[in-house]
């Protein structure tokens, strides 16, 4: 794939705009039509795909710092419920896919996004409790405050929850979890884990 590799620092010339395309970590300066590096790292040149109309190779700079994962629409996240209100529950996102996030992202699960059926009859308080660990998918970037999350799939919902007595509850059905210490049954929107 890669033709040649060498280290570059920001501001170094990578090629002419007519000969190469700027990929990640590189930019095209419009006033002299030259491609410069924007990061410190290795330069790599990838040939264009054979069917694309633009036959210039793409030049990229691969930096050494990995940034933390950021939730994006469609991905599955693990979140901890912080507050349950009548029409929505707010949660802090802890993992995106299998990676833990570096900074705080907040999400909300609205009443209509808790389950797929009878969405207007959902009682938030019998779906989540503060402290529950929830598996959810990101619907959209949401408003300025929080990502919109959804648990409207069988595999999504509460994956781990503590009972009133303080024990980690065991799922009984898709709406109930039972405490192993007291045998008390609590209502949750339970995720179907495994199988």
């Amino acid at each position: 794939m890669k033709e040649e590799e060498e280290m570059v620092t920001p501001g170094e010339v990578l090629g002419k705009g007519t000969e190469v395309k700027a990929g990640k970590g590189a930019y095209l300066s419009p006033h002299n039509n030259t491609v410069y590096a924007a990061l410190t790292g290795r330069r790599s040149v990838a040939p264009p795909s054979p069917e694309s109309p633009d036959q210039r190779p793409t030049v990229e700079v691969i930096g050494h710092k990995a940034h933390g994962p950021v939730p994006e629409p469609g991905c599955v996240v693990i979140a901890r419920v912080t507050k349950v209100m009548a029409r929505m529950a707010s949660a802090d996102i802890m993992c995106v896919g299998s990676k833990s996030v570096r900074e705080k992202f907040s999400g909300v699960i609205r009443q209509q996004d808790v389950r797929a059926t009878e969405i207007d009859k959902v009682d938030m308080h019998s779906s989540f409790r503060p402290g529950d660990i929830v598996k959810a998918s990101v619907i959209s970037l949401g408003d300025a405050r929080a990502y919109y999350l959804s648990t409207a799939q069988n595999e999504l919902g509460v994956v781990s929850a503590e009972s009133m007595a303080g024990g980690t509850m065991v799922p009984v059905s898709w709406t109930e979890m039972q405490c192993p210490l007291t045998g008390q049954i609590e209502q949750r929107k339970v995720a179907k884990v495994g199988a």
């Binding site: 920001p10 501001g11 930019y27 924007a38 050494h64 710092k65 940034h67």
Partner: peptide
């Protein structure tokens, strides 16, 4: 900034 990997047009 360069250490943080923030894109810059030049140093």
């Amino acid at each position: 900034l360069a250490d943080a990997g923030i894109p810059m047009c030049d140093l």
